[in-house]
Design a protein around this nucleic acid. Sequence first.
DNA 1: GTTGTTGCAAAGAATTTGCAACATA
DNA 2: TATGTTGCAAATTCTTTGCAACAAC
Lengths: 138, 138
Amino acid sequence: MTTYATELALREAGLRATRQRLTVLDALRGRGDTVTAQDLHMELRQAGEPIGLTTVYRTLAALADAGFLDTFDREGEQAFRLCGDAHHHHLVCETCNTVEEITAEEVERWVHEVASARGFSVTGHRADIFGVCPACRG
Amino acid sequence: MTTYATELALREAGLRATRQRLTVLDALRGRGDTVTAQDLHMELRQAGEPIGLTTVYRTLAALADAGFLDTFDREGEQAFRLCGDAHHHHLVCETCNTVEEITAEEVERWVHEVASARGFSVTGHRADIFGVCPACRG
DNA sequence: GTTGTTGCAAAGAATTTGCAACATA
DNA sequence: TATGTTGCAAATTCTTTGCAACAAC
């Protein structure tokens, strides 16, 4: 179900709306967990989608670069996940890799207090919580 | 200046106090920035220390596993840094890779509030701030 | 038509493993 | 001495690049 809005969003980011990019975005849309390029490529191929591994790597990098995806590190591998527009943090289930987005004014405030107290100019920050989700605990 | 305390700490963690491990710990002790296995190996070799790359990898992994080191991701590469005992967060200079440790009761509190509100059991959390330190801004 | 994109094959880089020699406890 | 550790070389794995065919605008 590729929406027209998706194509617009891609163009806005200076990316052509190719079949492969729409495929990747569609695949990402359904899921709340993180995926690596390798994972996603295999899934898409198994689902019959013709797409190259190189393209999956490049697409995920481009989408992350354009702010469509959040990035995570799964021990050496880079994993990605579709994200909302606003800045947020993450509640990550270490068992199923599902990610819930959380906002936190408390953290934002803390970030600027700490940084300015030490004379740092802030370029970014990240606050993630790791745990096991209710579903995985059974 | 390999202290006896260092050797004890290693044994406590179930690791033998080998020359290589003490060398790595010594090298790490002096610095406030993060290093990768490749970096550290090269530095040690250049300093005349005989140590294998494999060993540096294994040593850093073991030390991190034992809680001696904090780990960071420098785009694909894993970087390490000696850390204090207590739980803390990081103020990272993206220019020189120096890390200042920061404590944050506010964040701890926030972590448990958010997690329990969603039924997650917490296994860990991490709050890092990225920026440019006063020295690098000149 | 132009220019960005794709995908294969090959290259590159980081990291891990097999295994015999070796050092620590 | 028994067992954990080392380090080389080789193998793995993740990721990137060259380049010609191709698709989007």
